[in-house]
Design a protein around this nucleic acid. Sequence first.
DNA 1: TTGAAAGCGCTAACAC
DNA 2: GTGTTAGCGCTTTCAA
Lengths: 328, 328
Amino acid sequence: MDKVNISIIAQRAGVSSTTVSRVLNKSPLVKDSTVQRVREVMKALDYQPNELARSLRSSSTRTIGVIVSNVLNPFFTSVVRGIEDTANAAGYNIVLCNSDEKPEKEVEYVSTLIAKQVDGLIIASSEKIQNYSELIGNKLAVFIDRKLDECNTKRYDTVLVQNRVGAYIRRIGIITGQSNSTTGHERLLGYEAAIQEAGLAIDPELVKIGDFLGYTAYGFTMELLDSKKCDAIFAANNLILLGVLRALNERKIKVPSEMGLIAFDNLDWMNYCNPGISAIAQPTYELGRVAVDLFLERCGNPLPASPPREIVLDISLIVRGSSVRQTF
Amino acid sequence: MDKVNISIIAQRAGVSSTTVSRVLNKSPLVKDSTVQRVREVMKALDYQPNELARSLRSSSTRTIGVIVSNVLNPFFTSVVRGIEDTANAAGYNIVLCNSDEKPEKEVEYVSTLIAKQVDGLIIASSEKIQNYSELIGNKLAVFIDRKLDECNTKRYDTVLVQNRVGAYIRRIGIITGQSNSTTGHERLLGYEAAIQEAGLAIDPELVKIGDFLGYTAYGFTMELLDSKKCDAIFAANNLILLGVLRALNERKIKVPSEMGLIAFDNLDWMNYCNPGISAIAQPTYELGRVAVDLFLERCGNPLPASPPREIVLDISLIVRGSSVRQTF
DNA sequence: TTGAAAGCGCTAACAC
DNA sequence: GTGTTAGCGCTTTCAA
């Protein structure tokens, strides 16, 4: 019992493989009785068309390559789910890749995905790659969360999240990631703008720029506490937040009376901490959805292509206990 | 400028496509100078081999299909990362699918993945499918987290997590998912065994079986509180835990003095709640890793196949504030 | 309404 | 060492 393919079906049904192919593709040109007969043989032999062969001919795999830095980051978990749902609804599958922000991993994944002939790419860039055009060629690609430099922005659609928020606190410290990453950079700019709008000067001692890891943030929190200069901390993502919490916990700092806290990234459990943690909620699932929508749009009408778009989604501030100052 | 393929390279390099193929596959039978020449032409034309065509011939896509109920569930997030890392290290990609525990989605995904010729499947079954053999055929498959019925277990490798824990508390309530899901069922059995080992009778009023969703758990918690019969709650997964926490919070119940709490699923943030939440830690990443290892093992030596294995990974109890009784 | 033949891009058996 | 030939399983002219 070897693999049944289109020509075996054709043989058994007494037709040509062309006709079988037409039945597969629901071509209206086939006589009803023939369709019937072919269908029966297919069922009898439990025939499964080989999508690989089909893709080779039609040069469409109905697969999207997705590169994020790490699914374990709840931000990306939700983005990925948004992408998968939307892709699935449109008849696409996704290949998931974690770059860990390493450009060499990212480059490797991009090549592999293109070699595997994905119909498109959705990439949260490590931002350490100079020239995407060279790497990606004219494969459809949508970039998410991180803004590319101008030369790349000119070629690809981008979906971002508004990273700046209005002023709402005074002596606030910030812990964020490297400023050569756009998200970190934008959040820092937002912070600076807020401080300045409040008519205050920026105190460099209150600005801690490291990476997006908990351990680094832990150290920075200790420094901020020692400086005794701020009454609130803004954690630029959820991993940083965990580091901050660990430090506050160890020092037995009361939140918010001794130190206010605001997170960038709104997660379920923040509701249940005591006090609840105020957070800036990013539309993560939506981010994934919109990215796929952009892909589908371009996929549908190949040429002439409209110019690349940049879509910026809004964030919202969710106030919980951690940012309500109880003493003044 | 149309697509460059192996024969264009061959032509430009003045060799046959076979030779180019040999260069691609690093066959040692090609003269060094020829290799050189072919490589140069490839570079000059920016040639990318088409993996689709290669897969069609070699009938290996170096792709694994992964079906979980929902990546948003932190349990599966970590499993997926474990799978992706291990697969990537072995030169495989993964196609991620969310079944939402819906058998029809699961069936659909399995068919698509097989049609796309994945080399294997890793499935967290919705447990609502009677006959996997029929669906999967003789495609390599590893089942994770949920135990299949005997007829299916006989055919496929399985990686499970030990769902039973020793006795450690007395009047404890449990909130868990449907008992026709093995994980829920096993956790319930573990609970019952623990109660009985402690020489106590099982009070049906303290056993709440619903689904693995927060909203249901919220209601159950209210019922447990109203019953005033237990002094601790065992939440059978992290979504249930959130429901429990919401209820405890609303009722302003003090943990652990008024009610102890133990979670099944250990997550970062449980450290930072006040009090910290005791949890049974499942080896999630490991679960993914082992699943891929089993796949790779079978992939390597096709036949004769060793009988299907069932691997059960150990859990560990992480004690934090929520389970330390302060009053007796 | 159907079929023959060519070919998507690559690999493998066999020759030289 | 290298080339010829024949497919992998399917779709797509073109002709009947």
